[in-house]
């Protein structure tokens, strides 16, 4: 009877072994976070300092000054009055409905996360494009990052760093970085081989090739990746608020627990408004670059 039981029930690991395995892993990680937690926290200290400084700057500056600066940036990057007007209306409505402060918090964290994602993601993408081995290593990691539920990697991050802005930023960056890495890799790999051969034939060094040819030609694709990264970072706002990140996610979380439909809807719409502004601006920028490269002259 005992001999044939594997036929009926899956021959799984002994329950004690499994418990032991989990305990061992948990214990090891706990020990790791106890002994290195402070050091790691100290490592992220400058980041926290910057986050707090930037958030305060946005919140404490007069609203009209922020509005003017945002509109100016939007115009510089997107070169479209339509987008500037839309941005102004969106921000005025957000302020009028009392969500200015939360929006500033969200904007500050999204900006920082995006910058970190670009600063890490573009170089990783470049390495991936230059070496097939790097690509075979990085691709599955990106797959895991994109499919692993955010809550799962929130656990170790919170265990290590507690609750607050820094773990929030780490969680958002993990979630949002894959597109910029993937599209940097893709963009560089798609650069015309003939043009690269020409660069070689004129004696360009590896660095001259990268900076003078590959990155500029990949830039429209890289921009599409950055756009996706920003969108994904915004999508993480609510989840990040669960580990203490200030911003538009907090009221959404509150309205889930208390069933405040309107509060949730308004803050949700504010996130959407931010997303649309970021999206239109970065897309307009990407399109502008694309046009410059592909100006067609068959008139």
């Amino acid at each position: 009877m005992a001999d044939t039981s594997w036929w009926v029930t899956f021959p799984q690991m002994e329950r004690e072994t499994l418990v032991g395995f989990r305990k061992a892993l948990d214990g090891a990680y706990r020990d790791f976070s106890r002994s290195y937690g402070d050091a790691i926290e100290a490592f992220f200290e400058p980041l926290l300092f910057f986050l707090v400084w930037f958030e305060r700057l946005l919140i404490n500056a007069p609203w009209w000054a922020v509005l003017v600066v945002v509109c100016a940036l939007v115009f510089l990057v997107g070169r479209s009055w339509k987008i500037v007007a839309g941005t102004a209306v969106a921000f005025l409505l957000i302020g009028y409905f009392g969500m200015w402060k939360d929006t500033m918090s969200t904007m500050s964290i999204i900006t920082v996360c995006t910058l970190i994602a670009i600063a890490l993601g573009v170089p990783i993408g470049i390495v991936m494009a230059r070496s097939d081995r790097a690509r075979t290593i990085v691709t599955p990691i990106l797959d895991v990052m994109q499919t692993m539920p955010a809550f799962v990697y929130l656990i170790p991050v919170v265990m290590l760093l507690g609750i607050g802005k820094v773990p929030g930023v780490i969680a958002v960056v993990i979630y949002a970085i894959p597109p910029v890495i993937r599209l940097t890799n893709l963009g560089i790999r798609l650069v015309d081989r003939d043009v690269l051969e020409a660069a070689d034939a004129f004696g360009a060094s590896g660095w001259q090739r990268l900076v003078g040819v590959q990155i500029p030609l990949a830039l429209p694709t890289i921009m599409a990746g950055i756009n996706q990264t920003i969108m994904m970072a915004l999508a993480m706002v609510v989840i990040a608020s669960m580990i203490g990140v200030q911003g538009l996610g907090q009221p959404v979380l509150r309205s889930i627990t208390n069933q405040y439909f309107t509060l949730g809807l308004l803050n949700g719409l504010a996130i959407v408004a931010l997303a649309i502004v970021f999206d239109r601006v970065s897309q307009a920028y990407g399109r502008r670059m694309q046009l410059q490269y592909e100006r067609i002259s068959n008139v």
Partner: peptide, 30 residues
């Protein structure tokens, strides 16, 4: 490659993000 031998290609292989001036000056810039 920079000083002694340079090459002209069948498909032109010009750099689309550089102007005519910048393309012609590419070898010198390198």
């Amino acid at each position: 490659r920079r000083n002694t031998a340079s090459m002209v290609f069948q498909g032109f292989a010009l750099m689309p993000h550089r102007t005519v001036r910048e393309n012609i000056g590419y070898g010198l810039k390198v």
